[in-house]
Design a protein around this nucleic acid. Structure first.
Lengths: 236, 236
DNA sequence: ACGCAAAAAATCGTATACAATTAGCCGTCG
DNA sequence: CGACGGCTAATTGTATACGATTTTTTGCGT
């Protein structure tokens, strides 16, 4: 799975400082070590990675393009705090594209791909039973990787990159609005989808995928709670 | 249409130099005043807009995230030169998402939206009959705006941004591989799609959209012609 | 005249420095 | 006692400077 995209700039591909920082921060956000709303000042980021503000700034700008941090002019960068409406749009986008990706992936899937998917599933299950923060974080990533791997199999680098953005932002949304202590993704549903693909039952696989996404979304509490109303917070 | 997205950083929204440059270059690329492969050195861009290399660099980096320019480490930035395979992926992505966007848009479309779409169509037709470079460029933009407006009507800012990227990159592809001198888009097909939406015939609208995209793609010559081989160029 | 190697030029990568804007603080005034 | 105003500190926006890498040129030898 780490063979990820890296589509453009094929040849030299030596990540240029800023990209390393960007990736490190992104990973921290996706694994929820950084909470939504956390301030990411350019100086702090620079000091943390022992680079100049120039590179820190570049990394933050890059993350802002992916929707993972929001930079406010003359105020600074913050880990994105998606509104309930944004959250709905993210999942609407996933419902819109994932069935299509699934179809494309099913059309070109190889036995090797399937065994890789199964292995991912196994790993996911193993992490799920473990205790501890680090296992939990790895599990969060693994459950997203299932969706990303389908995108990779589809062979469309553009859709793959888009899915990476959607999965990452989903992680933020779940961190903010998720209710169940249970992990992010219904684990068994992933297995069902693979099974449907193997049976060449594409329609069923797509339907399962839609249910799966709906299931994740159903676990969210997307009520507008704009800093607790500031009035309602004390009147009750 | 210019009410565009601008989702993040809602409040002050005063574009910060680099963004202005980015938009200017993007417009130049989409309108095909800049050809694929053109070198965009940071110094040149900076001088052209009377800003420092810092801002020029930021703008180019931003464009690289959108896939409109490719930056090669220690070599420079160039207007993207999508490979035939990339071109296919771009159109595959459009086939994958545009029907879905169309369905979402149809669900929330208002009479006002329809009249705006019609007006866009009229403008497009007017420009099509005119002669001259500037009219041609405006037409290119207008034909893309039809698709973008549907995305805007769909109410999903994320899908809208993605469509903006896809339309812009499509323009590059057409510039590179387009054959017919005729414009980029079958104009009448846009009208047919609107008509189908008005008749609440969603399935037909989606089918028309798919045909429309296929039609654009059919006008491309996507054979691998890697700088004409340097040998084959003279042996025939 | 051709090819190769070393130097020169140009360009990018990163750091530092300065200017502009914002946020917090404190003192004064009503 | 609360509110307003200006000042200071912190943070971002932009420019300039320096080092590294690549490309081109140039000059020498064969």
């Amino acid at each position: 799975m780490k063979s990820a995209v890296k589509a453009q700039q094929a040849e030299d591909s030596a990540e240029t400082g800023a990209q390393q920082i960007r990736d490190a921060i992104r990973e921290a956000i996706v694994e929820r070590r950084l909470s939504p709303g956390t301030k990411l000042s350019e100086s702090d980021v620079g000091n943390l990675f022992n680079v100049s503000r120039t590179l820190a700034r570049a990394a933050l700008q890059a993350l802002s393009y992916e929707g993972l941090v929001s930079v406010e002019k003359n105020r600074g960068a913050f880990v994105a705090y998606p509104s309930p409406d944004e959250a709905r749009q993210i999942f609407a986008a996933r419902r819109l594209v994932e069935p299509g990706i699934l179809r494309e992936a099913a059309a070109r899937i190889t036995p090797g791909d399937i065994s890789q998917l199964r292995q991912l599933l196994l790993e996911e299950g193993r992490l799920m039973s473990e205790r501890g923060q680090t296992a939990r974080r790895a599990e969060i990533k693994a459950s997203g990787d299932f969706h990303l791997m389908l995108a990779e199999i589809s062979g469309n680098a553009i859709m793959q990159r888009f899915m990476e953005e959607l999965v990452a932002r989903s992680s933020l949304v779940i961190a903010l609005y998720g209710q169940s202590t249970a992990s992010s993704c219904g684990h068994s549903e992933h297995g069902d989808i693979i099974a449907a693909i193997e049976n060449d039952d594409l329609d069923r696989a797509c339907q399962l995928m839609l249910h799966h996404i709906a299931h994740i979304e159903a676990d969210l509490d997307l009520r507008e709670r704009k800093s607790l109303g500031l009035k309602e917070a004390f009147e009750l």
